[in-house]
């Protein structure tokens, strides 16, 4: 008993026994969220775990040029460009809503992204950030514009994603994207076909404001090719992020012509992309500008 009594005093310890005041101020371990796993809401073609900050509006202008291997006559693809204009709003720090309009097939798209859990470090650390993403694309074209649909639901293609990312170090982040694509069945009219897919991507920051990004999605091509007149390929992309405070510039090289989930996951092929290894590569870039409605 006596012994325990003394031990209890010992455990109390000399709190400020030394004159070095500063080292006694070392913070007790607290739990802190890991921030800025990626610079932008997009890795390259697809999304990152990042959301738009509360009450911020992100205006995103994206371009894809034609294939580089079209050669000098087409100015290496730069003679022809497609655009996606997007507006994305942070409802709160963990919930983002976005809409967009693409040149390709005049598609309208929307998405909702929720950050479910954040990577934390400190006393209660958690290894990854997880966000859930749902996207929906609508093809609004009239028959004269090439929109031939038997029923309205055939105009819709959706996708659901889990985005799981880890900021491994200050300069290296990795992300895994299990995905399900929902599209109108090409063989059974009026029914929805589910196509599994999984993506992997990452970034390597080489200075405070620039990073090299890479992204690859595997899509179940056996299911995807049923009833399609052209071959499709898995989308792959390499690029560069340049952040200048409020603006993020993203340069991209990819085999996909489309810039939304529906297009790069299900339409990389035919007129809309090709085989990366054969040089069917499109150059493109995005500029995103964030406006604050805080004050």
């Amino acid at each position: 008993m006596k012994r325990l009594f003394i031990l209890a005093f010992l455990a109390g310890g000399p709190v400020f026994a030394q004159t070095d005041l500063l080292s006694n101020l070392d913070a007790e371990p607290t739990t802190r969220p890991v921030t800025a796993t990626f610079k932008s809401t997009r890795l390259l073609n697809g999304h990152t775990v990042e959301t738009i900050k509360a009450k911020h509006l992100d205006f995103r202008i994206s371009h894809r040029f034609d294939r580089i291997n079209k050669g000098v006559d087409e100015f290496f693809g730069l003679d022809y460009a497609t655009v996606r204009l997007g507006l994305e709003y942070g409802i709160n720090d963990n919930l983002t809503f976005g809409i967009g309009r693409s040149t390709i097939e005049k598609n309208l798209d929307s998405y909702l992204k929720a950050r479910l859990i954040r990577q934390t470090k400190g006393s209660r650390s958690f290894p990854v950030t997880i966000s859930a993403l749902g996207t929906l694309a609508l093809d609004p074209r009239k028959p004269a514009q090439g929109g031939e649909f038997k029923v309205y639901s055939e105009r819709l293609v959706g996708s659901g994603h889990l985005l799981i990312a880890r900021k491994v170090s200050e300069s290296f982040s990795l992300q895994l994207m299990p995905t399900a694509i929902f599209r109108p069945s090409p063989v059974k009219p009026g029914q929805t076909q589910v196509i599994p897919s999984v993506g992997i991507g990452g970034r390597l920051k080489f200075n405070k404001r620039m990073s090299i990004n890479a992204e690859y999605y595997w899509v179940d091509q056996n299911r995807l090719k049923t009833g399609q007149p052209f071959a499709t390929y898995n989308p792959i992309a390499l690029g560069l992020d340049i952040e200048t405070g409020g603006h993020v510039f993203q340069l991209i090289f990819t085999n996909s012509f489309g810039m939304i989930e529906k297009q790069f996951l299900t339409q990389t092929g035919g007129a809309f992309g090709g085989q990366f290894e054969k040089g069917d590569i499109h150059f493109g870039f995005s500029v995103s500008r964030t406006f604050s409605f805080d004050h």
Binding site: F9, L10, G12, G13, P14, V15, F16, A17
Partner: peptide, 9 residues
């Protein structure tokens, strides 16, 4: 140790 603890704090 205890003495230091008291005086220091």
């Amino acid at each position: 140790a205890l003495a230091m603890n008291i005086t220091a704090s």
